[in-house]
Computed example of a mutant assay.
Amino acid sequence: MNKDLLHHSLTLVDLPDDGLTARFYDILFDRYPQVKPMFSRNTRQQASMLRSAIVSVVDHLDDADWLATTLGTLGARHAGMGVTEPMYGAVAECMVAAMTEIGGDQWTPEMSEEWTAALGAVASMMLAGYPAGETGAA
């Protein structure tokens, strides 16, 4: 992964008041309304936690142990909430869509590709934390 590109592109779209992650949830619920019941009505706190997680992952891209441990633990929590493997693809799609929208003319296809790959890697590490046989794959 290109840490510099991920960091730079995140600075382009990391809006005040968790604007990126709030927009992400708008897109997610519009494209995948079936996941909305998994969340509280007010996603403000969730948006804040998601923003913090994204920043932490980018900050720790050089620390494989931290990533594996932290994301595995996070994955185990998500398994307990009913998050299934296909949902990770939807999350990546909607996050890149939010980033592309917010980034506007400064956002490049290379940034989208890098974020798609990074979010796929995050999903893999989170799924590694799921109890055996509980990824909810189709």
Rank of each mutant, 00 (worst) to 15 (best):
M1Q: 08
N2H: 10
N2Q: 14
H7F: 12
L12V: 02
L12C: 08
L12A: 04
D14Y: 06
P16N: 04
G19L: 06
G19F: 05
A22W: 00
A22G: 02
R23W: 01
R23L: 11
F24Q: 01
F24H: 01
L28F: 11
D30W: 00
P33S: 02
Q34I: 08
V35I: 12
V35L: 03
F39K: 10
S40Q: 13
N42A: 11
Q45Y: 07
A47P: 09
L50H: 06
A53P: 10
V55P: 12
V55C: 13
V55G: 10
S56K: 14
V57F: 12
V58F: 14
L61T: 04
D62N: 15
L67T: 06
A68M: 12
T70G: 04
L71S: 04
G72N: 11
T73E: 15
T73L: 11
H78G: 05
T84E: 12
E85C: 02
P86H: 01
Y88G: 06
A90E: 13
A90N: 12
V91S: 00
E93M: 09
A97C: 08
A98C: 06
M99Q: 09
T100K: 11
T100E: 15
I102G: 06
G103Q: 07
G103R: 07
G103V: 08
G104D: 09
G104P: 09
D105C: 03
D105R: 10
W107E: 11
T108C: 06
P109Y: 06
E110W: 06
E110T: 11
E114A: 15
E114S: 13
A117E: 12
A118N: 06
L119W: 02
G120I: 08
A123E: 11
S124A: 14
M125D: 12
M126F: 08
L127E: 08
G129N: 07
P131I: 03
A132T: 12
G133A: 08
G133V: 05
G133C: 05
T135M: 09
A137N: 10
